[in-house]
């Protein structure tokens, strides 16, 4: 009777057990389809974002004069780029992710939300691991000092992750019905990149710009992560309460989208 759990809704606990099993099966499957059995396999999950961060750090270290401050540049680059990866990669992974998985929906217990969550779990663990490994790696080289307040780093990162999850689920749901999302996401993510706080500190902007960029939830997240990393070097500007409100609304909208998509879904 175990496989009946979700549909009859007899017991929430059993439904959760089924869902966990399904998500884990999807994660394992996704790891094979995405990274293959060849090469260094699923290690790409860490190496891919790592190469990005390394490149950006090098570039910014070479052009250090442009920033002209006593900021720990490597810590600035690592926190900046790792934070962008959180929300950008998750959204990119979920947009258009229903279509190629339609055949799996023949199995009653496999739902759109499971497809989404499995991809998010994989993406989040990859981005988080690369962030940690890079921090330790550059720390060992002596390029950056360990975070002044690790708890604050985690707090900021989790808020960024929540924002990434809700944005990704919302766009993933909408993109199934409106293909234009896929077309618009790439230019949008490029425009958002310089605005997201990856390449600036809010404090260094003119006050009018500050109010403007602080509308963007990811700016708050990055500022918090950096406050935890090297808060004694600058004045951080963020309000996690604001981020929480935005994320709650976005999560609600995302769940409504997913419900709407599921009601009209035809397995193929």
């Amino acid at each position: 009777m175990a496989i009946e759990g979700r549909s009859s809704g007899r017991s929430l606990l059993r439904a959760w057990a089924v869902q966990q099993r399904v998500i884990w099966a999807l994660v394992r499957r996704e790891m094979i389809t995405r990274y293959g059995r060849h090469n260094i396999g699923f290690l790409w999950l860490f190496v891919e974002p790592m190469i990005f961060t390394l490149g950006v750090t090098t570039l910014w270290t070479l052009t250090k004069t442009v920033h002209g401050s006593d900021l720990p540049i490597t810590a600035f680059a690592v926190t900046g780029y790792s934070s962008v990866l959180v929300w950008r990669n998750m959204a990119s992974r979920l947009i258009g992710s229903i279509e190629p998985n339609l055949s799996l929906m023949y199995h009653r217990n496999v739902k759109v939300i499971d497809i989404f969550l499995s991809r998010l779990v994989l993406e989040m663990s990859g981005v988080a691991t690369s962030f940690v490994v890079l921090t330790l790696f550059f720390g060992a080289l002596g390029w950056l000092s360990m975070p002044e307040d690790p708890l604050k780093v985690v707090e900021g990162w989790l808020m960024l992750a929540w924002f990434g999850v809700s944005l990704a689920m919302f766009l993933g749901g909408v993109s199934h019905r409106h293909e234009l999302i896929d077309k618009f996401w790439h230019p949008c993510s490029y425009i958002l990149f310089p605005l997201s706080g990856a390449a600036f500190l809010v404090d260094s902007l003119p006050p009018s710009m500050q109010t403007f960029v602080l509308w963007l939830p990811m700016v708050h997240g990055i500022e918090c992560v950096r406050d935890g990393f090297f808060g004694s070097h600058f004045t951080a500007h963020y309000d996690l309460g604001y981020v929480a409100v935005v994320c709650t609304v976005l999560t609600g909208l995302a769940l409504i989208q997913i419900r709407a998509v599921e009601n009209d879904l035809v397995p193929q």
Binding site: A2, I3, W24, A25, S103
Partner: peptide
Amino acid sequence: GAFQHSLTGYDNLRFICRVYD
């Protein structure tokens, strides 16, 4: 239906078995 064509038969078997415990 119900199969992922880029995966091997064995991977598909494993996936479906996991889904149904």
